[in-house]
Amino acid sequence: MSFVMLPFLSSPPASAAESEAPRPLPGELESAELADFDKFDPKRAALVDLALKLGRTHRLNRYLFGSADPEKGGFDCSGSIYFILSQAGIQPARSSAAQYDWIREAGLLTEVPASAGSLEAPVFKKLQPGDLVFWAGTYRPTDGRTNKVTHVQMYLGVEKASGKPVMIGSSDGRSYSGKARCGFGVYDFKVPSRQSKARIIGFGPPPGLEKLQKPAQP
């Protein structure tokens, strides 16, 4: 699914056979496949490395709304972030909306203006590997949340092979290498077009990152 589609909903299948066909799994990377990984801030490098290891270990976990537990067979977007950070010894909020508030209340959030229509926008010069990125407008929430956040992923940096930015998390239909995928793993990082209902509204590092020493092993 591109950024103009809903991450939690999919179009009705054209046939029963199509509905039974498994969706392709997301990508997986090694830390060394990220450009300038050896120059990352050590704590951010530790978090990114752990996220990628977990992405490989749990790559068979598909998108599962409401789950933050790999034993259930999948994660939703915020559940995958919750799992990564918990494994790193950081105790995050659970939902994407609550994770946004968690970072904002810690004074770590960079807000993205609606005018930022591409990665060339000045605000994205502040984006760093390990930051959580938040979207609004990817679907219509019904849980009474007080902010507009509906999706979250973790920014990883730029892939050496493609020269393109990538992120990690769980999603239903976003793309990797231009092909729609489903599940927990690596995805292309893109800014929604101005015509899209979805947009990135903020990003920032998880509180507690500064205390990260050595990531837990998956």
Rank of each mutant, 00 (worst) to 15 (best):
L156F: 05
R140Q: 14
L108C: 06
W102M: 13
Y82V: 10
K160S: 11
T110N: 12
S115Q: 12
Y82N: 14
V133I: 14
K126V: 03
S118D: 08
T138A: 05
E71S: 15
K164Y: 00
E159T: 09
L85I: 09
R181V: 05
I103D: 02
I84K: 02
Y100Q: 02
I81T: 15
Q99S: 09
Y82R: 15
V158T: 15
K125R: 15
A114E: 13
E120D: 15
G137K: 08
R94Y: 03
P92S: 15
F124W: 11
L127V: 11
Q153N: 08
V158H: 03
G178L: 09
I84N: 07
D101P: 04
T142W: 02
R174Q: 10
A161Y: 00
G74K: 08
V133F: 03
A97D: 12
G163M: 10
D143F: 06
K179E: 13
R145E: 04
H151L: 06
V158F: 01
T110D: 12
K148N: 03
G107I: 11
G173T: 11
T110F: 11
G89V: 09
G117K: 13
E71W: 13
S95E: 03
Y139S: 06
K126E: 14
S118G: 12
R140V: 12
V123L: 08
I90Y: 06
L108E: 05
G89Y: 06
L108Y: 04
A116D: 02
P70V: 05
G169L: 07
G79C: 09
G163E: 03
A116E: 02
I90P: 08
L85F: 07
G169E: 01
K179D: 02
Q99E: 09
S177M: 11
V123M: 07
S96W: 01
D172C: 13
S118M: 07
E105G: 12
D131I: 11
A136L: 01
L127I: 12
T146E: 09
L108R: 14
G169D: 00
Q128D: 04
D76W: 07
D101F: 11
T150S: 12
S86K: 15
A93F: 04
P141V: 07
K148F: 00
G185H: 01
R181F: 00
P92E: 05
A121Q: 04
C182F: 04
S175R: 15
K125I: 02
S115V: 11
C77E: 02
K72D: 06
G74Q: 07
D143G: 06
L119M: 14
P92A: 14
D76K: 12
L85T: 13
G79V: 08
G178F: 05
P141G: 07
H151C: 06
G144K: 06
H151W: 02
F75D: 00
P113S: 10
K179S: 12
D143R: 10
